[in-house]
Simulated scan of single mutants.
Amino acid sequence: MSALTRARTVEAAASAQPAPSARPSRRQEARRDRRRRFRRDWTLLLLLLPGLLYFLIFHYGALAGYLIAFQDYVPFLGVDGSEWVGLANFAKIFADPAIWQAFANTLQISALQLTFFFPAPIALAIFLHSIQFEFIRKFVQNVVYLPHFISWVIVVALFQQVLGATGILNNWLADGGLGIIDVIGNPAAFKPLVVAQIIWKDCGWGTIIFLAALARVDEQLLEASAIDGAGWWRRLWHVTLPSLRPIILLLFILKLGDILTVGFEQLFLQRDSVGPETAEVLDTFVYFSGVIGGNWGYATAVGLIKGLLAAILVYAANKTAHRLGEQGLFR
């Protein structure tokens, strides 16, 4: 067989063999991986569906209601029949002294909450974690968790029974011939009282996340620092708190998103005792202006600006966290 014939035979055999299958692209691999994970986790996704529908309908779907911020909205006429006023409701905000008073009260209460309430669960969690006897620790945890499940109606009533003009404290002072101290009706003491109430009610519940984070603190680092002569305070400052820093920063960013939401029910129940000049916040202002006063478009405009400011604060805090080398809430 000549060389030319052998070359043609090899070429024909090579062409007869099936071509190797092309490797799947990166997009195809990702699609297959998603299908595989869906088949594996479909039961978990089904359990997630009710909560997802709740947020889609009552949180994201409700965003369409912000359309009435640009209308002179009348409930009986609906969105289609109400008059469009453009930015008139937003212009009205800057000329209304009542909204600025409510805004100032909101910021003051939020500043007090960030200063005193936000670190309170951290300190309480560290204290609970330091208790050596498990029985005592669980007992204290159950006691401090309990107020979280009490409604604000009962909490406010309890504080009124203790600190009100005819409460236990003033009855005790009257029996001793001393003067009466009306803490509940005192405008100067109202904002610190509001912070004290939320600390008493939710401080214990807020320790749950920090207790879980404390359980992940490296015990070897604590033991090594103790061997090196570090006292309790130095171990706390250089080992424990740096381990809690990511979760503290995450919760702080989330708290900034709620900085203009200081608790509607709590403030609403005590508003009349000190007057709107002291107790009116943005949430109660929206309720009394919109639901009670009928200024639906104006109240919605206030709520829209409040939401935009909260989103800006969260975004700015998240960017700051990234610059400090932390993960933050989102990329």
Rank of each mutant, 00 (worst) to 15 (best):
H322K: 15
S289Y: 05
G179P: 08
L67H: 02
V140Q: 03
L53Y: 13
A321S: 12
Y298H: 04
L324M: 15
T320G: 15
G325R: 06
L256W: 08
R271Y: 13
I131Y: 01
D96K: 10
Y73D: 00
D96Q: 13
F55N: 04
D283M: 07
L236C: 07
T278H: 11
L4Y: 08
L158A: 09
W152I: 04
S21Y: 07
L236F: 07
Q266G: 01
Y73E: 00
T9K: 14
R26L: 15
A316Y: 10
A165H: 07
E29V: 12
V286I: 15
R331G: 14
T106P: 04
N170S: 06
F149K: 04
A196P: 03
L221Y: 07
E134C: 03
D202P: 03
Q101H: 12
Q108D: 10
H238C: 10
A301M: 05
L44F: 15
I253L: 02
V155N: 01
G290P: 01
I126A: 06
F55S: 08
V239Q: 08
F127I: 09
D182N: 14
E83Q: 11
R34G: 11
R27Q: 13
L49P: 08
Q17K: 15
A196Q: 04
A165C: 03
H322D: 10
A3L: 13
L221E: 05
L45E: 11
R245Y: 10
I93D: 05
I57M: 11
W172Y: 07
T115S: 13
Q101P: 06
F139A: 12
H148P: 06
A62M: 08
R6K: 15
R27V: 13
V74E: 09
F58Y: 04
H238K: 12
A311L: 12
V85W: 01
G325D: 12
F117Q: 08
A125S: 14
K191V: 08
A95E: 14
W237T: 13
T300R: 05
A91H: 14
F149A: 09
V314Y: 00
R323E: 09
G206C: 07
